[in-house]
Write a protein that binds this DNA or RNA. Sequence first.
RNA 1: GGAGGGGUGGCCGAGUGGUCGAAGGCGGCGGUCUUGAAAACCGCUGAGGCGCCAGCCUCCAUGGGUUCGAAUCCCAUCCCCUCCGCCA
Length: 430
Amino acid sequence: MLPRELFRNEPDRIRRMLRDRHTEADLDRLLEVDGAWREVLVRVEELKARRNVGSKEIGALFKAGERREAEGRKAEMAALGEEIKALEAEASALEAELAALELTIPNLFDESVPVGTDESDNRVERSWGEPPDFGFEPKAHWDLGPELGILDFERAAKIAGARFAVLRGAGAALERALISYMLDLHTGKHGYTEVLTPYLVSSESLRGTGQLPKFEDDLFKIEGRDLYLIPTAEVPVTNLHREEVLAEEQLPTRYCAFTPCFRAEAGSYGKDVRGLIRQHQFHKVELVQLVHPERSWEALEKLTGHAEAVLRGLGLPYRVVTLCSGDLGFSSAKTYDLEVWLPGQNRYREISSCSNFLDFQARRARIRFKPSGGGKARLVHTLNGSGLAIGRTLVAVLESYQQADGSVLVPEVLRPYMGGLERISPEAEG
RNA sequence: GGAGGGGUGGCCGAGUGGUCGAAGGCGGCGGUCUUGAAAACCGCUGAGGCGCCAGCCUCCAUGGGUUCGAAUCCCAUCCCCUCCGCCA
């Protein structure tokens, strides 16, 4: 959510942003409603001031024993009350519409964000590692995994339908190893506090981070209740401090969380239908930071580095891109995507998304801090990034570490988490 | 699921139709004292909105209602706690 003064004072700036994001929002209606609301509000408040004075006088008359005089004033006040009630209904309807409209306006993006239409306009910042030369035709994980007996899409479809997977044996262990490796790295080396949160959240939490009201179709909702499966740990973790005033000393607050994520993926029919890339359920280790508003840009660079460290540790080649205006998420002011090299697809694929939201989420979720030098509570800045998406990391490991004989080497850093296992072979599976 | 109890400022906690935006305490800020600190003492200290200002209006879980007037009375909803039931 953007501050109201911005709509009032710089509507053209908002309009430009909407155009560059290739997004529609009814800014004109918003401005109109805002003006009307303020007009009615002034009138309501005038009447209320009169009522407050009148009521006090009646109270004083009763106390002075002037019963008749007091009773006489009541009718007049009652009429005023009716007038207030009607006008107030008008005001609150306008305010509700204004509040609803505000929630549909995306964040302003930073100057350093390239203006563009879609992912082809994203800017490559840097890359690390070289796509390996196998000396044979590398397989895609959807062939490799089932052949090794560690991945089963058919049985997953039987029990839950399309876009689910079953991991088995060393595959399940590899998933678990990746989770532990990432959590240990972020808590041990990068200064994050691990949290384990609910996987179901209320609509208010989803509004706080910006998934609602605009992206309801992407979510799984529990029927008959105000509960949704989380699409990312960003939602429960950022909302940990919703409606709180933190001490400045608590900043920066850094959390990492392992959670499953659930996405309805509406409108993605025909996209990535094979394999683990796009699933209704996947695992992710998420990094979330609440920081001082003057530190969020440096925090974004550091946070991105923390996600990169995971890929480096695993020896997986990747590149960093800055999302262009048209590809940027609703709440984000700037996003770096980490794209890992997938030999089976012969291309880079998104494996992490690291964003600075500035005060956009903090304003929605009312997350503030009290400056240590005194003064009013200020909004914090929030950031988050995947560190990393586990399923896609598993894909990258399988495809990058595959051998000519169809086996897969276990990356050095994961072996301690897999009982010292060095290689996943078909024979090893019963 | 059943029966009770309860949601008040950054935190704890009092309040019961009108001078209550709310006692008291803690915390925070400033001061006195001190070489410095602690202690003690004194003072200040909630948030949001509208308005050019003066100022006005909201806010005691949320939403309705009663009333000239609601933190206070009534209804509904949500959440928390205790006990019982059930369960991992």
